[in-house]
C-alpha cells in the first residue's frame, strides 16, 4: 500500500489573541481518510487550532498547508480553501430563516453555482443519508438538537469537501441525542472522509479515531493511536487529564 496523501500539514503554528498566546509551535499532520481527534481541557487551544484550519481564525505565525497548498489570507481567496474544508459547529449555526433543504442547497447554488434542481437532488440524498429526508421542508426551529446537527453535517457535505472539521459537535446536545450524531460521524469516517474532531466523547475517540492528539496550554503534549494514548499515556499531563475525565 502506498503512503496515504497528506491532507493537512501544520508547522510551527502560533496564534495569539492580544496578549494571550493560545497556540504555541503546533506541528500536526492529517493524512487522507484519517480521523484525528483533538482532546484536552477547555482553553487548551484545540478549538482555535481547528478554526485556524479553515481560516476562521488567522494564524500569527507558522505554516498551514491544506492538500499541498499554502494559502496566504492576504492574497489568496480563502473561500476556495473553505469549500474544500467543511465545518460543523458546536451550536449548529443552521440558517433559521431557511428550511432544512434550503440550508443544504444554499452554498452549492450560491458558491458553486450548481443548478437548483441538481442541488435539490443532491441535498435530498444527503438528507436521506443523515436520516432526515422527511424534514426537508421544516424550519430548523422545528428540529431537535441532534437533528439540527445532522442537518449541519449534511449542509457541510453538500459542498463535497475533502476534509471535515467538527468543533465539539455533541457538546450542546442533550445526552440522549449524542448517539445519533456520533453514528452519522462514524458512517462518514467509514466512507473514508478525512476528519478532524474536537470532542469530549472519549468512547468515540477510542472507537473511530486513527490518531488522538492531546493538547494542553496551547501545545500538543502527546499524540498516538487511541489504544496507546488512552491505555499507555507517556506524558504525566496526559495521564492526569485522562484520569480526571475517565
Amino acid at each position: 500500500m502506498s503512503e496515504a496523501r497528506e491532507m493537512i500539514r501544520v508547522e510551527k503554528l502560533n496564534k495569539s489573541f492580544g496578549d494571550l498566546h493560545v497556540l504555541k509551535d503546533i506541528d500536526f499532520t492529517v493524512k487522507e481518510s484519517e480521523v484525528v481527534v483533538l482532546i484536552g481541557a477547555s482553553g487548551s487551544g484545540k478549538s482555535t487550532l481547528l478554526r485556524c484550519l479553515n481560516y476562521l481564525e488567522l494564524k500569527n505565525d507558522g505554516k498551514i498547508i491544506i492538500e499541498g497548498k499554502e494559502t496566504d489570507p492576504k492574497r489568496d481567496d480563502l473561500n476556495k480553501v473553505r469549500q474544500k474544508v467543511g465545518m460543523v459547529f458546536q451550536h449548529f449555526n443552521l440558517f433559521p430563516h431557511k428550511t432544512v433543504l434550503e440550508n443544504v442547497i444554499e452554498a452549492p447554488t450560491q458558491v458553486k453555482k450548481i443548478k437548483k434542481s441538481q442541488a435539490i437532488e443532491e441535498a435530498k440524498s444527503l438528507l436521506n443519508k443523515v436520516g432526515l429526508a422527511d424534514k426537508a421542508d421544516d424550519y430548523p426551529s422545528r428540529l431537535s438538537g441532534g437533528q439540527k446537527q445532522r442537518v449541519a453535517i449534511a449542509r457541510a457535505l453538500a459542498m463535497k469537501p475533502d476534509i471535515m472539521l467538527f468543533d465539539e459537535p455533541t457538546s450542546a446536545l442533550d445526552p440522549e441525542l449524542v448517539g445519533e450524531v456520533l453514528a452519522t460521524m462514524k458512517e462518514l469516517a467509514k466512507e473514508g472522509m478525512t476528519m478532524v474532531v474536537v470532542t469530549h466523547e472519549m468512547g468515540f475517540a477510542r472507537e473511530v479515531a486513527d490518531k488522538v492528539v492531546y493538547m494542553h496550554d496551547g501545545r500538543i503534549v502527546e499524540e498516538g493511536e487511541p489504544n496507546q494514548l488512552f491505555d499507555h499515556p507517556q506524558e504525566q499531563r496526559t495521564q492526569e487529564f485522562l484520569s480526571s475525565i475517565l
Binding site: R82, M87, A156, M159
Partner: peptide
Amino acid sequence: IGKGQNEAGRSLGMNRSQTMKRI
C-alpha cells in the same frame, strides 16, 4: 445576529457579501 451565522456562511465558502446578503 450571532457571529455563528456569519461563520457558518463563511465556512461554506460564501464570501462576505453573499453571507451578508443571503444570511
